[in-house]
């Protein structure tokens, strides 16, 4: 069963057709990779799925609901959460506050309850420990290193108990040890039933972690399948090599 269906998605920026009829599914319980050369439109697709951008055309069905016209916060409430290619953090707030922001408020009635409840604090510390940065809980986020911010990004998503997590280049600029850690945590969470859609250039990570691969080029999907089948796909090789050559 598909948790996420993307159908005929189109998005233009001025004259540039960044996403041009993009169609693919993310199966429930899978770790799906979305790969493709730079500028293929991967980040734009994530922005469309998460509601940050509105599609010009096309349909996005998440967990049985059409979400293509929904604002991002409603999509988040439905159980989808994402990281950004360049970490977006609330820089002047503490790590703990960054975690707490992701915790569901619970409608109008929750609006005036304490900003961080005891349960939320405990959950946040647990998740920070899960990625190994619990000691930074009271640090101002601005002071974190690049890699620590990536880990915070990742941990904070879990505050909302999402069904689907979108990651935009989790391995980008990350050292091998940290990458190992991220891969391991993704696997653990996947075992607990969380579905992943991961945009990634690191083929080692894609091949070792993902069980489904979607390849994009020039705004459309050019291939889909298991990592093995993609590795040997002629079109895919050309898309990548063509990019390298030019």
């Amino acid at each position: 069963m598909a948790l996420l269906e993307v159908h005929g998605l189109r998005k233009a920026f001025g004259g540039l057709q960044a996403v041009n009829g993009c169609t693919f599914n993310v199966e429930q319980g899978s770790i799906t990779a979305l790969i493709g050369p730079n500028g293929a439109g991967k980040t734009t697709v994530l922005n469309l799925i998460s509601g940050i951008l509105k599609p010009d055309k096309g349909r996005i069905v998440f967990d049985g609901h059409h979400i293509q016209r929904r604002p991002p916060h409603q999509i988040t409430h439905r159980g989808m959460n994402r990281t950004f290619q360049i970490s977006l953090n609330l820089e002047d707030m503490t790590v703990l506050e960054n975690m707490a922001v992701l915790s569901p408020v619970g409608g109008m009635r929750g609006l005036f309850r304490p900003d961080i409840s005891k349960a939320e604090r405990e959950r946040a510390l647990e998740l920070l420990a899960f990625v190994g940065i619990a000691h930074l809980a009271h640090e101002v986020t601005r002071n974190l290193s690049y890699g620590q911010k990536k880990l915070l990004d990742f941990a904070s998503l879990l505050m909302a108990d999402p069904k689907l997590i979108l990651l935009d280049e989790p391995a980008g600029g990350v050292n091998p040890a940290l990458l190992e850690k991220i891969i391991d945590r993704v696997r653990q969470l996947n075992d607990q039933g969380i579905t992943f859609l991961i945009v990634e250039h690191n083929m080692e990570m894609v091949m070792s972690t993902c069980n489904q691969v979607v390849v994009m080029a020039y705004g459309t999907v050019i291939a889909e399948g298991t990592p093995q089948s993609i590795q040997n796909n002629q079109t895919v090789l050309e898309a990548y090599l063509g990019k390298v050559a030019s």
Binding site: S50, I52, P71, P72, H73, T76, H77, N81, R82, F84, L88, N89, L90, E91, D92, M93, E97, A100, V101, L102, P104, V105, G110, L111, F112, R113, P114, D115, I116, S156, A160
Partner: peptide, 21 residues
């Protein structure tokens, strides 16, 4: 309150706040 936390998130990064729910 949660409301205040949300407002502070908005002042820091509105896209992030919105994506956070």
């Amino acid at each position: 309150s949660k409301f205040g936390l949300g407002l502070r998130a908005i002042s820091q990064n509105e896209t992030k706040a919105e994506a956070s729910g």
